[in-house]
Design a binder for these strands. Structure first.
Lengths: 206, 206
DNA sequence: GCCAATATTGCGAGTCGCTGTCATTATACA
DNA sequence: TGTATAATGACAGCGACTCGCAATATTGGC
């Protein structure tokens, strides 16, 4: 699953590849154990055992037990792909293209893992709470790259509003998508972003 | 401070009074220690020591360390006073009267403790997160009593909307009130509820 | 006022998430 | 090949929280 993280790049050294493999293994085994026994009933030590690392190493990769679920392996890819979009595209247009690229090129097991993460986060109150923080973090991150493309500052009012709207569409899609598959989720997200890009024309003329 | 909890009532037995006193002592000492040393730097054992009970007893009164801050000693009084309001009043009117009664009759140290709780919850991310749950819980509770007064079901659409609006006014007031005193907070909350009760007339005619 | 049923408490051992330290091992680089 | 550097595992320890149990306090009936 982790070879996805290395495609089309100068190929990092052995150390970096090992680290990526360990991180992926920890998350995979964690999600599997959570599915089999439940989130609370699974201990960090068990995850570390399954991934064949020491418990201390677990915390070197994920600061808390929650983070092993919250961490999105596709995030770095999305970020990179977004920055590579042609300058002619609008921010929302660039994001839509980015999502099509990254999710379109992702193998099925990666998408399945995204579904599992989403469902688990939704089901466990502790994780759902933390997700709010993640959304806030996403906004700041996204604001930076949007600002860079637009030649504005990240705290620019328009940048902030746009970023808020985009993340808002993401939240709304996520909340209304419990249990549905990644393909559904992505389609609805894209539709929502299309609406946003066009200024919600279908809502103006009833 | 806890005699407030016993005014004008058939007077519960010794056991109940002791329990109320222990609960109040735990919360008082906890808030004091948090103020002096900070929330994280204070341990539950220290709170228990200060209140002269065993650590296990602490957890019998408050299921988590967070709850000793979140617990609002005035809640039961508010509930009782609300249910005693004359049936002629609208739900919002009854709530305003309730708040005037309860907070108006509360001694200064109780109000000061409310301020301290509000500031602490706002300052500690962990508590701020949990506060969302508390708001949700408040809505359900409030929906029950409003429904009872109105002769409707708690999941009635109008009941839900009203309850949501009221709690929303509370949140907005709280968020905009960092550091201000209880009297300010209560005044603004009452103004907000008045606006709500009247349908926000000042916003309709610019 | 006494006694039995019951509720509350303190105690101790234990689990789990998480932190910090240190010696050992593996990778990178020159 | 040797050396700086980074990652790892083992260990000790802290704090929140749980559980079971014996001791103690309150209550209600007599």
């Amino acid at each position: 699953m982790d070879q996805l993280l290395e495609t089309d790049r100068p190929r990092p050294g052995l150390r970096e590849r090992k680290k990526a493999r360990t991180r992926a293994a920890l998350q995979e085994h964690a999600l599997r154990l959570f599915r089999e026994r439940g989130y609370e009933a699974t201990t960090v030590d068990e995850i570390a055992d399954a991934a064949e690392v020491s418990p201390s190493t677990f915390f070197r990769y994920f600061p808390t037990k929650e983070d092993v679920v919250l961490y999105d392996a596709l995030d770095p890819l999305l970020l990179e792909a977004f920055e590579a979009q042609p300058a002619g595209l609008s921010p929302v247009g660039a994001l839509r293209a980015t999502m099509r690229e990254v999710f379109g090129g992702a193998p099925a097991d990666v998408l399945a893992q995204q579904d599992e993460r989403a469902a688990l986060i939704f089901a466990v109150p502790e994780l759902r709470m933390r997700m709010l923080d993640e959304f806030a973090r996403s906004m700041l991150l996204f604001a930076d790259v949007v600002a860079k493309r637009a030649g504005r500052r990240p705290d620019d009012l328009a940048v902030r509003a746009l970023v808020g709207a985009v993340v808002g569409v993401g939240i709304a899609t996520w909340v209304n998508a419990r249990g549905s598959q990644a393909s559904d989720y992505l389609r609805r997200m894209d539709e929502g972003l299309a609406e946003l890009e066009a200024g919600f024309p279908t809502l103006s003329r009833p």
